[in-house]
Simulated assay, not measured.
Amino acid sequence: MDIHLALSSLITLSFFLAILPPSYYAYDPRFVDCSRPYECGRIKDVSYPFWGVNRPEHCGRQGFKLECYDEEYPIIKFEKLEFLILNISESQNIMTIARWDLWNRSCPRTNLSTILNYSIFDYTSAVRNITLFYDCPSQVYTPIPVQNRFTCSLEGSDVNNYSYFVNETLAKIQFPFLEQCRGRIRVPILRNSIIDESAGVVPALHEALKQGFDVDYNFLDKTACDGCMKSGGNCGYSNETHPFVCFCRDGERSHFCTGNNLYSFSLSHFTGLG
Rank of each mutant, 00 (worst) to 15 (best):
120 I>W: 04
120 I>G: 02
121 F>M: 06
123 Y>Q: 08
123 Y>C: 11
125 S>I: 13
126 A>L: 15
130 I>T: 01
131 T>N: 05
134 Y>H: 10
137 P>F: 06
138 S>V: 13
139 Q>M: 13
141 Y>P: 04
141 Y>G: 10
141 Y>A: 12
142 T>L: 04
143 P>H: 11
143 P>Y: 08
143 P>D: 08
144 I>F: 14
145 P>L: 10
146 V>N: 11
146 V>M: 15
149 R>F: 01
150 F>P: 03
150 F>Y: 10
150 F>G: 07
150 F>I: 04
152 C>G: 01
157 S>K: 02
158 D>H: 03
160 N>Y: 06
161 N>L: 01
162 Y>W: 11
162 Y>S: 09
163 S>Y: 00
164 Y>M: 01
165 F>W: 08
170 L>W: 14
172 K>H: 09
173 I>W: 11
177 F>A: 01
178 L>R: 02
179 E>I: 10
182 R>Y: 05
182 R>G: 08
183 G>H: 06
184 R>N: 09
184 R>L: 08
185 I>Y: 01
186 R>H: 09
187 V>M: 05
191 R>F: 10
191 R>Y: 05
192 N>F: 10
193 S>Y: 09
195 I>R: 02
195 I>Y: 03
196 D>T: 15
197 E>Q: 12
198 S>I: 13
201 V>E: 05
202 V>G: 03
205 L>I: 05
206 H>M: 14
207 E>H: 11
207 E>M: 11
208 A>I: 04
210 K>M: 14
212 G>H: 01
212 G>A: 02
214 D>V: 00
214 D>R: 12
217 Y>D: 02
221 D>H: 05
222 K>G: 04
223 T>I: 14
224 A>Y: 10
226 D>R: 04
227 G>W: 15
230 K>V: 09
230 K>C: 08
231 S>V: 03
231 S>D: 04
233 G>Y: 04
234 N>P: 02
235 C>G: 05
236 G>Y: 04
237 Y>K: 06
238 S>L: 15
238 S>A: 14
239 N>V: 09
241 T>A: 11
245 V>A: 13
246 C>Q: 03
247 F>W: 15
248 C>L: 09
249 R>C: 03
